[in-house]
Amino acid sequence: MNIFRFAGDMTHLISILVLLLKIYATKSCSGISRKTQELYALVFLARYVDIFTEFISVYNTIMKIVFIASTLAIVWCMRGHRVVRRSYDKELDTFRHYFLIAASLVLALLVHEKFTFQEILWAFSIYLEAVAILPQLVLLQRSGNVDNLTGQYVFFLGAYRGLYILNWIYRYFTEPHFSRWIACVSGLVQTALYADFFYYYFLSWKNNAKLKLPA
């Protein structure tokens, strides 16, 4: 464990806490893409299938449980909660995310570290996570001005993978035979997708203005 990875995990945790706060405090999920939440639930379920077989550390197991449970809770809340689901922007959240699932699955079958069930599921979760934010970014562009908590949620979610890239660079230079090129290339793509969001987020912070993504 290094500071970059720990900071990345904490940033990821903060993004989930901010999202939970937004939904709990405002009893609304307006501006949040349910499709992105469903894709993230799939990412965690596919990536953490080894939670019961491979024990890495207490921290690792607890964080996996927190990520799976919180994301499933958010999806349930957006689908089933009487009050919250009424504020879901159903007509704006129209990204065809099934294509993202299919493309990630095909790519995982073609490009993986080993042709085993677990490795292919892991590669699938890595590729899917890289594109999982797309429905959310499209929804932000369509829904005009973005409320602060939603903006902060997306910001922390994008920042965490950027910190992971620093972690991979650090491990590359400090650990012999460290190679994680699938996660690294995918992480670069994932972080690059946030580039324009980060730009407008920075502008809104600098000008102390409301965050607004151009349509």
Binding site: R5, D9, H12, D50, E54, I56, N60, M63, K64, F67, E113, W122, Y164, N167, R180, A183
Partner: peptide
């Protein structure tokens, strides 16, 4: 057990 080392991240 390089398998564990390669999947020690979240």
């Amino acid at each position: 057990r390089s398998q564990d080392a390669s999947k020690d991240e979240l």
